[in-house]
């Protein structure tokens, strides 16, 4: 088991590091056209959206508690609460809703 998982972790480390490092190391002093620049600036928004939806609905084992937490966290973002508080609010909301 131990040798086996060491090799697996080594493989996971390699395939995770490579995509992180290649663009940073290779794209040095490269001028990027305006349209591409805009496209890349939009990636954080669309990536986060795709990370949240639909995975959030399956994250608690109960779609209603997930929906409740989604609502609370989005409202908390609207009120500009800090990220830590939003995470704690999310966990508490699920915890409370799971009691019913």
């Amino acid at each position: 088991m131990v040798e086996n998982y060491l090799l697996t972790v080594a493989g996971m480390t390699f395939v995770t590091y490579l995509p992180r490092a290649l663009p940073l190391v290779l794209f040095k002093n490269v001028q990027i056209p305006d349209k591409l620049d805009k496209f890349l600036s939009l990636i954080p928004f669309t990536m986060l959206s795709a990370l949240i939806f639909p995975s959030i609905f399956g994250s608690t084992g109960n779609v209603y508690s997930a929906l409740g937490a989604l609502t609370v966290c989005v409202f908390a973002s609207y009120r500009k609460l800090n990220p830590t508080l939003i995470v704690l609010l999310g966990i508490s909301t699920v915890y409370i809703l799971q009691q019913f």
Binding site: F45, L48, S77
Partner: peptide
């Protein structure tokens, strides 16, 4: 165990906190 089950939301709550302020 009940608190353990609630922690699956943490990752998504963080993503929401990073994304929605810009969206609003």
């Amino acid at each position: 165990a009940s608190l353990e089950a609630s922690m699956g939301i943490a990752l998504y709550a963080l993503f929401i906190a990073l994304l929605f302020p810009s969206a609003f």
